[in-house]
Design a protein around this nucleic acid. Structure first.
Lengths: 352, 352
DNA sequence: GGTTAGCACTCTTCTTGCTTGAGTGCTAAT
DNA sequence: ATTAGCACTCAAGCAAGAAGAGTGCTAACC
């Protein structure tokens, strides 16, 4: 893509920029006459037509039919957002709205939900936020309850107030008192330490064959590990305002819309996309076909990762038609991600 | 509605029936000529036109425009399903599919999910199943964890393996040991009894001023009550195959579709409708505007309640366009409800 | 050589008018 | 009470034409 920037002179880029801006605001293919007036360059439509022909050869713009003006392609948008975009600062109304709503949230799920809702509402598109995944989980409390047939219900509370539960299957049958003992043991040695570190410590102690480590305690650790492992996999997201996408004429086609919403329901494709975004720092964008998924053909995804304690734990973003106001959406997503991170950062909690 | 049946003679009803059947299968307004051929009655189109005029006066059918044949109205459909319908037995393929899939399910949520999925898949419309609500909940285990500022995290396990959690706010501040004591007390006296009955017993004991009842125990009960109360309210449903509705031309209008899907997301209106259905035994139907909700204008909802231990605990159904094959859908929903009830019925669980 | 004016051409969109077919309502005859 | 006949209405489809927007190309211009 970058080679394009070099291949093209200043003027062509300027024209592409105005073209994209114009198309984003109007939704109509833009012709040479409009472009001549819109751009600050003093050029005649005829000249602009020549430039357009070049841009079309490079695959940056495309003409729906012979007499229809030009529309940016995915590559055109890409070049635009990468090199030509002049971002507009977030308006203060939205900023205060975001700040107030997010900082007022007490618990994680609430904050995630609100973030998703705000993304959708303020952009009038769809908002998506992944649940934060922290592999270093602090255990607050753990409880084992035996069910029938070697099945054990594990309930554990992490990070102050997140309750998880999982049914695990064990080889050995445990008595109620054994389970109680195991839970007590885990609850006593966990004081906000991460699961990994505790597990290592226990294994080390076991090797040293110290008296206070017995098999059932290791069992307990293993059970917890089992439960944690499976639970940390649950990468999921909160999607809000999907219905906003129904009004866009780009997505009017019924089967296309159906495919899109089915992808939202399946979740896997979206998760895969969001995972890719999480690897990159800062704002990450997929434009139209770039995502590689049929269902997202006409959609763009603007995301940014958010962090807790300087560690990237999730990603949030906006889904809309490729023809969206990137210059506004990009800073908006960026700021929201930062504010969500701030809202989720561990706050002071009084000792128990 | 019933007065219509009496006002109309056999012949008119017969004609209405064929009209509705024809419209359901074709989706086109049906004219007098077609009706003359379709119905077994040996009547000329002209006669039928007269009858149609009568039916139109009664508000049972409606003409989109002067030269367009007739289409059933909501009342027309209503009369049809109430008095004219000849239900078709469920085909054996679907029956075995339902039976096998549902009886294979181990846990409640799995069964609910599968039921919803089957409803959607086999009808090619949307399937909905409410989560079962049992107000006589058997408590298996309860745990209190203090958070900051009078907030207490209550975790309780009901009916073998359903884990609920709720943060409650209390006037008084409890120490960790008080909470432990309260939990122990509750865990000891609950042995599968319903919450109501225990609460009454405790209050009675308190009045009798017996030594083993103290304030903190009452607090415990109150806390549990608080947590339960709020939790039992969470009537929720599992909706599947909404996207199937996108292909129906009746719902093609984008804003209409948006409203419908927003109603699905809000949930409250749908819950209200489903609640109404739960009160009635057997299959319950809302046709088009009958529901009273704007968003469901062009939709019909066919539901049936399902029971555990002969007690109605939930409702399940199918949402589709008013023009649906009621004669198939009704028995289908009926059977699914019964099979789901059977799948959910408490099975033998070995003692712990 | 880059830029521009001019011109022929293309293609969409809108309108208009026309035809066809389906279906109705009414009336008069059976 | 039923039916045949007829005038009427309306949607949908089709063709032709006009308007408008925009292009590509060529030749002239600075």
């Amino acid at each position: 893509m970058t080679h394009c920037v070099q291949q093209l002179n200043e003027r062509s880029l300027q024209l592409l920029k105005t073209l994209v801006e114009r198309y984003i605001s109007d939704g109509q293919p833009v012709g040479s006459r409009i472009l001549a007036k819109d751009s600050d360059l003093k050029l005649s439509p005829a000249t602009i037509r020549n430039v357009m022909a070049d841009l079309e050869d490079l695959g940056l713009v495309h003409s729906p039919h012979t007499s229809a003006g030009r529309v940016p392609t995915a590559s055109g948008y890409r070049l635009f957002v990468d090199s030509l975009l002049t971002v507009k600062p977030l308006n203060t109304q939205d900023l205060t709205r975001l700040h107030e709503s997010l900082s007022a949230q007490q618990d994680t799920n609430g904050a995630i939900g609100i973030a998703s809702k705000l993304l959708a509402e303020l952009t009038q598109m769809a908002g998506v936020v992944t649940l934060p995944k922290r592999d270093i989980v602090c255990l607050r409390h753990i409880e084992f309850l035996s069910l029938s047939n070697n099945r054990i219900l594990v309930i554990f509370v992490t990070n102050e107030q997140e309750v998880h539960n999982k049914i695990i299957h064990t080889d050995k049958v445990f008595s109620a008192s054994e389970l109680q003992q195991a839970a007590n043991y885990l609850n006593s040695i966990y004081s906000g330490r991460s699961l990994m570190s505790v597990r290592e410590a226990v294994l080390k102690d076991l090797r040293n064959d110290q008296a206070h480590i017995n098999q059932s305690m290791l069992d307990a650790i293993n059970m917890a590990q089992l439960a944690f492992n499976h639970d940390s996999k649950k990468d999921d997201y909160v999607l809000t305002g999907e219905t906003n996408l129904m009004v866009f004429s780009e997505l009017a086609d019924r089967t296309r819309l159906k495919n899109l919403f089915e992808a939202f329901n399946q979740k896997q494709d979206v998760i895969h996309l969001l995972d890719q975004c999480m690897k990159a720092e800062g704002v990450q964008i997929f434009i139209g076909e770039e995502s590689g998924y049929q269902a997202f053909q006409q959609c763009s995804l603007v995301t940014s990762s958010y962090s807790i304690d300087n560690e990237v734990v999730g990603v949030l973003g906006v889904i809309g038609p490729t023809r969206m106001a990137y210059e506004k959406i990009i800073p908006f997503v960026d700021v929201t991600a930062k504010l969500l991170g701030a809202a989720l950062n561990p706050k002071f909690t009084p000792p128990f």
